[in-house]
Design a protein around this nucleic acid. Structure first.
Lengths: 170, 170
DNA sequence: CTGCTACCTCAAGCTTGGTTGAGGTCAAGT
DNA sequence: ACTTGACCTCAACCAAGCTTGAGGTAGCAG
């Protein structure tokens, strides 16, 4: 058995539930590293599993791989990361996560109001989060709703007219 | 002025903050519709702004465009949607949003524990959400973490060994 | 009539996060 | 020696959600 404390790519895949191709991909992106055998095969140290765990958790928080990579690169090189290292890293996402939860909650509350009034006026309802730049740091790629001007103003006041000036400002 | 209650694409873009190209895109995907002038230019009815508002909100909830499209297609054709219509639609995302908030909260709590122990053991920590299939319904495209087996088991028990059998199943 | 801007179409390109496939090697079992 | 399975590389492809660019039209001002 290859219980030599080193793992093959297949073993890592099986134990992590991450496809081999994804592991290659992560390696290409610098998220994990491997030693090569004489025959050019990858061998992973056990803490790679922890890296992968971190990657998966981070993805679920909604962090893009690039950011995860940057975070991981803060781990000590040539020393197996210890508890504290991982704790420090995990703590990084904590506030990110808090933010995202708060955003969604605001969105939900707004939406609830909106459901009540049915107007979908974004002045008063859901999207009315001016300065909500961190918003939509959603997973995947760009939703990037914020940077321009997040706010649509469909309904003026009553139901569905609204000609409240072309105050769109360039 | 084209205050004829119909809007040009540029006006809609300005008022919604959505790029003209994106509006074309939405139209191609069947999320919005337009009338054409004799000269083949698009003219939008005012409720289009509300549709766009709905689209943006939905995206922030993390709903993919295709799903949003399906939802929008439930709106009455050839009758301007009223409050109730919009309210019904918005309500659709309500539970979705609740789910996502709950997921993130669980993730946060798990992560908090994890920060304490620093082990990043996904048995006990953050990712240990078996059967969490709805998870990672994140925006953007696929994070699709769940369908296979979401759980990595990096650390056995102590710190960084863990050879708890190759119980990886299949 | 010229010129300008806003508009049109269609195709190609971009980013993220991978997967799929072709063509070839390594390592182990018989 | 041969076969099998796991592994290797590299390029191509996928889906979402757009943007960019080329080449052309519409419509208004002067």
């Amino acid at each position: 058995m290859s219980q030599n404390s080193e793992l093959t790519v297949g073993q890592v895949s099986a134990r992590s539930g991450v496809a081999v191709s994804a592991l290659h991909f992560y390696e290409a992106k610098g998220l994990i590293r491997s030693r090569r055998t004489a025959g050019n095969q990858r061998r992973y140290s056990r803490d790679t599993l922890r890296r992968i765990a971190f990657i998966r958790v981070s993805q679920r928080v909604g962090i893009p791989l690039k950011t995860i990579q940057r975070a991981l690169s803060a781990l000590p090189d040539e020393r197996t990361p210890n508890r504290e290292d991982w704790a420090r890293l995990s703590a990084l996402w904590r506030s990110e996560l808090d933010d995202r939860i708060r955003q969604l909650q605001r969105l939900r509350d707004g939406l609830t109001d909106c459901i009540g009034c049915g107007c979908l006026s974004l002045d008063r309802c859901a999207l009315a989060n001016p300065g909500d730049v961190l918003a939509s740091q959603g997973p995947g790629s760009r939703l990037m709703v914020a940077p321009r001007r997040d706010c649509v103003q469909p309904c003026g006041d009553g139901d569905e007219d609204g000609r409240e000036a072309e105050a769109v400002g360039a």
